[in-house]
């Protein structure tokens, strides 16, 4: 079978589909002071997965606000800098109008994913952390 570290080099998704891969990638991002990119990406996935069942509304609203506050609100934060202004306004609108939709972070997640695919992921594959592991 293909060793995990070779699968991680196939695509960002194969890396993010493996616990050890995520752990190593996060260590690298932390070193580069941008681990928030990865945390935000997973937070968006987790938010989408949260059941829209009745009684969960308060939790979803609280979580949407928490994600917005931590990653999007501060324009100087690493995640916020990689999200388009229109996408940020859209999320802000959703939060302000209490219009909480499972897909409200989807566009922002896509933009952060593109940033990782074009930037941090290729750097990770050339990093000491990855090469030593491999």
């Amino acid at each position: 079978p293909t060793p995990p570290y070779l699968r991680w080099a196939e695509s960002l998704h194969s890396l993010l589909d493996d616990q050890d891969g995520i752990h190593l990638f996060r260590m690298f991002l932390k070193q580069e002071a941008c681990a928030d990119l990865l945390d935000f990406w997973f937070a968006c996935s987790g938010f989408r997965k949260l059941e829209t069942a009745e009684g969960n509304d308060e939790k979803r609203l609280k979580l949407a606000k928490a994600i917005y506050k931590k990653y999007v609100l501060d324009n100087n934060a690493i995640v916020s800098r990689q999200i388009k202004p229109a996408t940020k306004s859209f999320i802000k609108d959703c939060v302000m109008k209490l219009h909480i939709d499972p897909a409200m972070f989807d566009q922002a997640q896509t933009e952060i994913q593109t940033t990782m695919e074009e930037n941090t992921y290729p750097l990770f594959l050339k990093s000491d952390i990855y090469l030593k592991h491999a």
Partner: peptide, 20 residues
Amino acid sequence: IDSEDDLLQECISSAMPKKK
């Protein structure tokens, strides 16, 4: 603040793949 962070952490963990 703490409970917000806990909620975020729980959310992030829920999206991670389970150990194979």
